[in-house]
Amino acid sequence: MSDVAAKRRIALVTGGTGGVGRGVCLRLAAQGYRIGFTYNSNKTGAAELGKEIEALGGAALFDNPDISDPEQADGFVARVIEEFGRLDAVVNAAGPYAHQRFISTFTSDQFAHHVRYELVAFFELVRATLPHLRESSGSLTAVSSMALRRYPARDALSSVPKGGIEALIHAVAVEEGRFGVRANAVGPGVLEDGMGVNLAATGDVPPKMRDAVIRQVPLGRLGLGDEVAAMVCFLVSDEAAYVTGQKIDVDGGYGL
């Protein structure tokens, strides 16, 4: 892709201030993309990321809409289109923190919360952006989880909604390929940074458990959010023009 072509390309990234989302934004900005991204509560981090995107030669628009709400999803997408004129890539890297709990212990409200802010939010993102991706023959990429291949106990609040997200990815790949739209997913393993920091801080993944996971990773270490972002950006790129309906785990071999 030429520099001129790249500078005409627009991406929408949810969860832009997260470990993976931030890496995606910066990598795409370095290629000249203009980016609309969402954040949850880290307004300062969002402003800093916007400046970094601009320093790399890109342009940024950001806000904290509730994408699970149809009106807010439509509103943010409309702002991106109004500001940048088109949409070539959508990356879903947002999701609430998921406490590690046994199925027998979480409530209906807890489960519904995760279904809404992960699965329903992803559907609304797809619904709102698909007409624009058809126009550009664009790409949709979701950050999912390697837990759908190797399920770790107590991870249902995170992995169950992501199972639905992956099903939606398959649906888009099969039904929208005729318009040139590609849809794929990337499954992070246990990460050193990003959500991995939160899991350690809350005690959901204590040091002994973390060490046990590392011993089971063939590459002998935890991953980094930017390593996941690299795979996401490959799937966004023209290099992956014949890749759709796939789920690629970036987990150091932990899922084997």
Rank of each mutant, 00 (worst) to 15 (best):
V115M: 01
L140Q: 04
R149K: 14
G138F: 00
R150M: 09
V120Q: 14
V115N: 04
V115R: 01
S136K: 12
R127H: 13
M146S: 12
V143G: 02
P152F: 15
Y151M: 08
S145G: 10
V120L: 12
S145N: 11
R149P: 09
T141V: 14
E118Q: 11
A121D: 06
T141I: 15
M146F: 14
A147W: 13
E118K: 10
S136G: 07
R127A: 02
Y117M: 07
L119P: 04
A121F: 09
V143C: 03
V120C: 06
L119W: 06
M146H: 12
S137M: 06
P152T: 02
S137C: 13
L133C: 01
S145P: 13
A128V: 10
F122M: 03
V126P: 13
S145T: 15
G138R: 03
A147Q: 14
L130R: 07
R150K: 11
S137Y: 14
S144R: 05
S145F: 08
S136A: 12
A128Q: 12
S144N: 11
V115E: 01
A128R: 10
R127F: 04
A153T: 08
H132W: 12
L140T: 01
L125H: 10
P152Q: 04
A142P: 00
Y151E: 09
R127T: 04
R134C: 04
P131G: 04
M146V: 10
